[in-house]
Amino acid sequence: MNIHDKKVKKLEELANKIRQDIISMLLEAGSGHTAGPLGMADIFTALYFHVLHHDPKNPLWEDRDRLILSNGHICPVRYVTMAHAGYFPLKELKTLRKLGTRLQGHPEREKLPGVETTSGPLGSGLGQSAGIAYAAMMDKKKFRVYCIMSDGEQQAGNTWEAAMFTADNKLNNLTAILDRNNIQINGMTEDVMPLEPIREKYEAFNWHVIEINGHNIEEFVDAVEEAKAIYEKPTIIIAHTIPGKGVPEIEFDYQWHGKPPKLDEAKRFLDQLRTIGGKIKSEHQ
């Protein structure tokens, strides 16, 4: 399923709106993560509005594609995208992190149907994805499993235990997506605990590796299609992303990993996003 230019532009505009809603939502919550969610907005938009076979009105449909978010702290981008896709009303976004909410600070499977797994503690998503993929193969199910991971999580041993299992079992129904944004809490990943060469690591673990610009929806969709055609191996898409993408003053800055914007910041960020939004529209016209 190739994606035509017109749809790409539409998705880019939507991703921009999703970024704006992430900012508003975090401002309202008063805590939460900014950099990762903004960086993954394009991929989440492409997933929910082009790639995934899913039904927002029936989130537990048994043949749905499974989207596992291993790095649970970027859940704001998932919540906002799900709301836009029709899983729940947009106004519920205001409840993020508040008492009684379904939108927990880190996503919980039982609270919000559709988030698939409870996550936050890093390094546990790939194993769960492989478990789902393995079980689905046992039952000859056709759906696909997508697992989003962060680069910080590549430092956790469990990730590599799961990577070994996935390749050993040739789980070609699983596609991993790595948010390669180069930041974590204490600084840049290559300063904290270097991951490179990450591509070669996965290749050595018998994975098929595709590298893309994580802000290019077309490249992402092509990579997803390529993964479907690889039979002998699982595929990982290394998505090079910019943390804080769309808000130039915070892009690449690891200090925005885990804090929300304050009121004046949020206003500026929203302005900056709207300006970019305008550009997307005018390019389209």
């Binding site: 919550a29 008063g30 805590s31 939460g32 649970g72 992190r97 508040k98 927990q104 600070g105 880190h106 919980e108 409870t118 996550s119 936050g120 503690p121």
Partner: peptide
Amino acid sequence: VGPDGATH
């Protein structure tokens, strides 16, 4: 710990 929720 507060808003981070149950996992943390």
